[in-house]
Design a protein around this nucleic acid. Structure first.
Lengths: 132, 132
DNA sequence: TCCGACCTTCACATCAGTGTGAAGGCAAAT
DNA sequence: ATTTGCCTTCACACTGATGTGAAGGTCGGA
């Protein structure tokens, strides 16, 4: 498919699809007239990229990680240096910290909402210390 | 404490502590000579801000959420409009999506690492050669 | 009293992710 | 053959988070 269709299917502006290509996150073919030609798998790939960008990762990190995220048919497996493995571990632990931080804060939010919405009325004077 | 000490204790550049104040995330007192004066609780607050920023939230969202995240002595509880509750719910669900996305990708990373490292545990981390 | 370490504000710079528009090529339909 | 619509590259600009430096105030110690 061409860039317009991929844009429509993913909701991501064509401008950004070109940007992701420039950043080496996407590698569409080109047809005879120079138009970008994307495969079906690219739709999922774009979703994945968006998710990671939204989660605060940079395009550079995403580029490094993408081949190992199972989003497609990549990784012939044994093309991994020790350095690369170390980087993957590092990034995995960073993701872990991010997840923990977000989880704590989401739980605090949900806890707060539950507290004010569940036993609504009566008990207002007592403020329990919620999650830190 | 003054800005230098808070910076040293949190590892966050003083420049950013000023920026967070400008963004209404911190509200230090001022001493007689105009120096910022932070309380003990601000250290934790800064950590929380950093975590959320790293996780891709903007200072604006953090500002809105911070009073409800239990990071301190805030929220007298019943000062919540319906609009505010809706916003908190929205943000909680966004956090949920972020968490899911990050979890999926971290699991993929860890799965990959386990797959290539499990079967051949013996030689690990010597030179920059291929592993697997 | 001077120095050095810390603080202040102001302001410009950088980087990533985007928005947006210009100027033009290609292709199908009118 | 011109319109219409999608595509191309180029390029300038904005925002949010951050780096950095200038010019100067405060303060404790030699």
């Amino acid at each position: 498919m061409r860039i317009g269709e991929l844009s429509a299917r993913t909701g991501v502006p064509a401008r950004l699809l070109r940007y992701y290509e420039e950043q080496d996150l996407l590698h569409p073919e080109r047809d005879a007239s120079g138009y970008r030609s994307y495969g079906e798998a690219d739709a999922g790939r774009v979703e994945q990229i968006r998710g990671l960008l939204d989660a605060g990762l940079t395009t550079e990190i995403i580029r490094q990680l993408l081949p190992f995220l199972g989003g497609g048919i990549h990784l012939p497996a044994p093309c991994l240096t020790a350095d690369m493995a170390q980087l993957l571990e590092l990034q995995a632990s960073r993701l872990g910290r991010r997840i923990d931080c977000l989880s704590r804060n989401r739980d605090a939010l949900l806890g707060y909402l539950a507290a004010i919405r569940g036993p609504l009325q009566d008990r207002f004077g007592e403020q329990g210390d919620l999650v830190g």
